[in-house]
Amino acid sequence: MPVSRTADDLPEWRRRTTAGDFAVWGAWLAGLALTVACFEFISGRTIWAFVWDAPTQGADLVQRMFPPAWTYADVLWKPMWDTINIATLGTLLAIAIGFPMAFLAAHNTTPSVLFVRPVMLFLIVSSRSINSLIWALILVIVFGPGMLAGILAIGLRSVGFIAKLTYEAIEEIDRTQVEAVTATGASNPQVLAWAIVPQIMPAFAGISVFRWDINIREATVLGLVGAGGIGMQLQASINTLAWPQVTMIFILILGTVVVSEWVSARVRHAVI
């Protein structure tokens, strides 16, 4: 009731009622208080002397990082190629597993809403909540350091991403097209192939390429836990405080990411 009467009985318009005003201000205040409390907690675990020193440290770091070790690039081509392969093969693995999973998880295509769907949703959530770096950490312990752990880590993390977005696309398809193909006497697999797959294909291709783009980024750091790629060189350079080499690695990553983003944008533009 934002319109009320003033003392002289004139109509007065306000955006909210008094109670509404209090509620909104209270909510803002509570949010602010929470943030400050959280910051206090963090601040209690921070050695502020180091922080006040940060500008000097930063300037010092920048000074040591430049000029980049241009010749170091020769050593980096192979790890960079490995990084791209980890991302690409990992994405392909995720597509191979995630695509059928999406059909098992989608409400309108799952063979069993009571049993199969909840299992799939649980697998999808588990895959999505564990960062690929943690997956890599686990897989390096299991399979030893190297690209295999990296590919599997990327694959396992991406399965959930691809399956989730794809099953959402499946649930949003146009039902009448499905009805029409069913009415011709088509079997269930035929309905899937003729009415559902054509409808979700553009979305699915877009999702896959988008994930590949993200995976290129993720693959650059997997080496930090020993799962192959350029992150291994990054780790080695940081441990030996070889900052010009670190700069060179950053530049190379920047270039690769920019190219992959461009490719992904082009492909997504083409399929939609």
Partner: peptide, 15 residues
């Protein structure tokens, strides 16, 4: 179902 053809309001073609 093969013996009953169906025609739809919104055409229902697989677009």
């Amino acid at each position: 179902r093969r013996r009953m053809g169906m025609i739809f309001q919104e055409y229902a073609l697989v677009e």
